[in-house]
Amino acid sequence: MSQPKKAYISLGSNQGDKFKNLQNAIDCIHEQVGNIKIISKVYKTPAFGFEGEAFYNTCLILETEFKASKLLKILLDIEKQLGRVRSKKEGYESRIIDLDIIFYADEVIDTKSLQIPHPEMHKRKFVLQPLHNITSQMKHPVLGKEVSVLLEACEDTSVLEPVNIWLKNPSKQYDFSKYNFIAIEGNIGAGKTSLTNKMAHDFNAKLILERFADNPFLPKFYKEPKRYAFTLEMSFLADRYQQISDDLSQLDLFKDFIVSDYDVFKSLIFSKITLPEDEFKLYRKLFYQVYKDIAKPDLYVYLYQNTERLQANIKKRGRNYEKDIENDYLDKINSGYLEFLKEQTELNIKIIDISNKDFVKNRADYLWLLDRICE
């Protein structure tokens, strides 16, 4: 999963319901491109370079995993979706919606189809003023000057009038403020770590990831499960306790909540499958002694995927020690989780079937999943 980059987009409209056109474009960008961080004020500005109706202009900052060329293609598609028909004649003209990439992180791109930073931005007050609202200290990577300096030096004499109506940021509709601690759980290959990473990044959460990769007994267990099952489960018991107690006790004032890709009760679920009955009874006694004072999550999300999809995901990520995991083992884990969750009366649990979803590659699936979590 690639790291998101910040893109700075200018939006304008001077046809029809201009404010609605801007909002529709913002909604499409949220649905198709990425997480919108901030939207500037809207300004009423005179048409630039031609005679026509006044424009409504704004700027926004978003985070996207798309490369700049792909981002441009999607923005042009959104313009078409909203009814814009581009004329082949040269010069400026009225348009129902206009979307331009002003900056893409601090990159400089100069191709036939795409120039970043936008080559005319420093000459246009209708770009610089809303951009100044949201990122006055952003430095132009070619001119080497901050947006505030470019605005002050701009020779455009257009008079901009602030519009006292704010556009809505659809990325703010997902409210996790009522939770202090969310646990994302699932079978091997269900995507719990991918979702946890995305949620932590998009919603300013403290991230807790299970340190399974550091466990030296895990590869040995997959080769000789009977020999190493108890050793593996005991090592996980100790490590999970150490990690979760440390992470939950360390207050982070700059984060809104905690999101983890595991819950400590997974130790009981896996050990019940991997251990003989007598060893499991001993293990369970130790578990409750160790975890009796550990905080439970305010929300427990179980990502269910069928075995076929789990095997495809396991194969795709290519961990050598997982290559021989059998369907029967995955079936038992799914059954173990579902049986465990049925017995829980004190946990706030959401079981979400994502067998036909790909929230890593498909943003629509990711937003669908967020909707299910927030319901």
Rank of each mutant, 00 (worst) to 15 (best):
V259G: 01
F103I: 06
K223N: 14
F50R: 04
K226H: 10
K5V: 04
K145C: 03
D156V: 12
L72Y: 03
K323M: 13
L128A: 04
P4E: 09
K315A: 15
L341A: 07
T135Y: 05
L62R: 05
T157P: 13
D175K: 08
L303K: 03
E152T: 11
L22C: 03
H122G: 02
L72T: 01
K206R: 13
K296Y: 09
Y8N: 03
F55G: 01
A229C: 03
L310V: 06
S194T: 12
Y300D: 08
A105C: 07
N306H: 15
T345R: 10
I188M: 08
Q32H: 07
M1L: 12
N334K: 09
A229P: 02
D246I: 04
L275K: 02
D27C: 09
Y321P: 12
S267I: 02
I39D: 06
K41F: 02
N320G: 11
N164K: 15
Q242R: 08
V163K: 10
K18P: 02
Y92R: 12
D156F: 11
D298V: 09
F257T: 03
Q15Y: 00
S136H: 02
E53I: 01
K316W: 08
G52K: 08
A68F: 00
S249P: 04
K285D: 14
D202C: 04
D156C: 13
P46E: 14
I38A: 09
F66G: 05
E31F: 05
A312V: 14
T58P: 12
L218S: 12
K112M: 11
H132E: 12
I258W: 00
C28H: 00
K6M: 06
W166L: 14
N356F: 02
P162Q: 07
L167M: 15
K80S: 13
E322Y: 10
K37G: 01
D256K: 10
K316N: 15
I109E: 09
K168D: 15
S69N: 13
K41R: 15
K206I: 08
I102H: 11
I78T: 12
S355V: 05
L131P: 00
I294G: 00
P276K: 12
N187T: 07
K316D: 14
F270C: 06
V85A: 11
L310A: 05
I325Q: 05
F50E: 12
L369M: 07
C28V: 01
A200V: 09
L143R: 10
E120S: 05
K315E: 13
N313Q: 15
E51L: 14
N133M: 08
K145P: 06
P4D: 10
S260T: 00
Q173I: 13
H201C: 10
P216L: 07
G91N: 11
D27G: 01
K342M: 11
L232W: 00
L218K: 13
L367G: 12
S40M: 03
L268T: 10
F257M: 02
E279V: 07
I269A: 01
Q81Y: 11
K67A: 13
A200S: 15
G16M: 05
N204G: 13
Q289L: 13
M121Q: 08
A47F: 05
R211W: 11
G186R: 01
C59F: 04
K296Q: 15
N180K: 15
L237Y: 03
S40T: 05
I109S: 10
N327I: 11
I333T: 03
M138C: 10
